[in-house]
Computed example of a mutant assay.
Amino acid sequence: MFLERHFVEKPWGRDDLPPEFGAHGWQRIGEIWYNGVGQSPLPLLVKWMFTSEKLSIQVHPLEADAKQRGLASGKEECWYIVDAEPGAVLGIGTNRALSAEELRTASLSGEIEQLLDWKTVRAGDYFYIPAGTIHAIGAGITLVEVQQPADITYRLFAYGRPRELHLEDGVAVALPAPYADARSGHVSGNLKLAEGPHFWLHHIVDEAGKGSIKDGGPYWLVPGFRHSTHDGVPTAPGGCIIGGSLEQLQVGQDSSLLIAGITKA
């Protein structure tokens, strides 16, 4: 089943999306959500993101922190870089461990921007972002994000823009330390990108990659190139398919697909 696309305007979005997403005139689209609009909520949320400006420095709560605040769940996510302008960066983790008071002071003064670990990225890079990780997405990046379906963000710093900050909650749930998660790197062929407590993500380029996935569905399929079919229908960039089995998926040579699923207990 092809999931419905939900376009989200953002001040940091773009008005020149790739043609496979359609023309949106003057709208600055920052995110496209594939979340089963009009259906029961899905246990994973897949997004495309397009940035023309850097996003705020932010953090998401862990499961326990979220439930303590009356929220349904925390928010862990994984990023796959589809395209990046030369010099584009992501901020992930801090250059050194910070105390809660140091983080609060740096967020208020703006020093947090210099304390964030800014990494130059290119197409094919991927990063798993555990809840509690301080992070920011820079300008000039197109990425696919797979995440828990929780729309909860605590902003620590917004570069002076008139955005609401959430210092009390953000400092309370943040784990301000250098990023050292092994679930990051650069894609080369068939590869399991990440497996976390809530979801996993694979990158596949051929039938052998499909065969390496042993977990049961449902599966979220995010096409990269037009060389595969699902139930006889060509897959295409800009779409997202959810299915209960990989048997209907035919992976062509030199294709590129992200496949996500729920981590089984």
Rank of each mutant, 00 (worst) to 15 (best):
K119C: 02
V89Q: 15
G110Q: 11
L98T: 09
A84K: 14
G70N: 08
G91Q: 11
L116I: 14
I129W: 09
Y128D: 02
G87V: 10
N95T: 14
S99P: 05
V89E: 12
Q114N: 12
S73P: 01
E111M: 10
P130A: 08
K119P: 01
D117N: 14
G87M: 05
A72Y: 06
T94Y: 12
R96N: 06
T105Y: 08
E111C: 03
G91S: 06
W79V: 01
E85Y: 06
I81N: 11
E85N: 07
K119F: 03
G87N: 11
R69W: 01
R96F: 00
G132N: 06
S99Q: 12
I92M: 02
I137L: 14
S99F: 01
W118D: 00
L90A: 04
V82T: 12
Q114K: 12
S109F: 03
R122F: 01
L103M: 13
G93D: 10
L103C: 02
D117Q: 11
G110R: 13
I92L: 15
E76C: 10
G91L: 04
K75D: 11
A100K: 14
H135Q: 10
G87D: 09
L116N: 07
L116W: 03
P86E: 11
F127Q: 07
T133A: 08
T94N: 13
I81M: 10
S73L: 10
R104S: 01
W118Y: 02
D125F: 02
V121I: 15
G91A: 12
A123Q: 12
I92D: 00
V121K: 10
L103F: 00
S109H: 08
L98W: 07
A88W: 05
E101T: 00
I137F: 13
A106Y: 13
I112P: 04
I92T: 00
R122P: 00
A88G: 09
G91M: 08
A84E: 09
T120N: 11
A97M: 11
T105W: 05
W118C: 05
E77K: 08
R69E: 04
L115S: 02
G74E: 05
G70K: 08
